[in-house]
Design a protein around this nucleic acid. Structure first.
Lengths: 144, 144
DNA sequence: ATTATAAAAGATAAAAAGGTCTTTAAATAA
DNA sequence: TTATTTAAAGACCTTTTTATCTTTTATAAT
């Protein structure tokens, strides 16, 4: 459902939320190493997130990526929207153009509530809230 | 979640279940036309389904694709399994290797029930049952 | 037997996703 | 001010997905 790029993006942003501050910026190299992602590819993704103001960066020595308070108040859905767009939440599981609650496909009644739930979960919670749940040990974002 | 090929496959098989018999075989051309799919590409997909005995075919005049009673008793998950494999049902939404009920990612509790529900729906119902629900008007597979 | 028809087979190609490498620009520390 | 560090930019490459085109094979109708 989410692209590889998007999964990398989400995990990276949460990593930055948990580990970086404006005084402790983190390079794409460290993120890639810690989260086991291809470094150059991740750099491109972080570059894109920076351009769209979802994360922040500075160049040079002691430079790197970090999150401002504004960045922290974005939702995870903002990340998804930036990287993948929101199409995934608006298309029929079986690829039917005309699928709807009044003309449901065979799995519509299963897929629709799921899409709503996941959409709500991703849009109603900020990066900060996601990070806090990790800090508390409610959820886990393993360093794969 | 499902590839384009897989969606084409599912819709085609249901179309065949609803419209073909051993005495009224249907060509890939008709299926492609009626379901608005690229004909040559669909032909490849149907060829694969035939090779794996999920649908049946004969060549020549009055030839085409159709479903035997055995074909009709397969589950839709058999189609998915044939075209895409079952990986989609076994991976974490956020791409974490170690995501599980004891170390859940932030959306695990939403995604896991969904995957179970959709898996059950696709594996517990035969092609015939899917087709019957369409015939009865319970569900709809529009001719896009 | 010949012809027409339709799937099977296989080569090819376009587009998208995933990923790498090199060069340039900006910032800091010395 | 020079060297170093790190992101930005952009060219390039690989794999997968999606798709097309051509040739061959099987079958049925005539």
């Amino acid at each position: 459902m989410l692209s590889n790029s998007c999964k990398y993006a989400i995990r990276s942003v949460i990593y930055l939320a948990l580990n970086s501050t404006v005084n402790k910026k983190i390079g794409s190299k460290e993120v890639a190493l810690k989260l086991n992602m291809p470094q150059a590819f991740l750099a491109k993704i972080l570059q894109e997130l920076t351009r769209k103001h979802l994360i922040s960066s500075t160049k040079g020595p002691k430079g790197g990526f970090f999150l401002t308070d504004e960045n922290l108040n974005n939702s995870v859905l903002d990340i998804v929207s930036c990287v993948d767009g929101l199409d995934a939440f608006n298309v029929c599981f079986l690829g039917l153009r005309t699928c709807s609650s009044s003309k449901p496909c065979s799995v519509h009644h299963i897929v629709e509530p799921f899409k709503n739930d996941i959409f709500t979960q991703l849009s109603n919670n900020t990066i900060t809230q996601f990070a806090n749940d990790i800090r508390k040990g409610t959820y886990f974002i393993s360093l794969d």
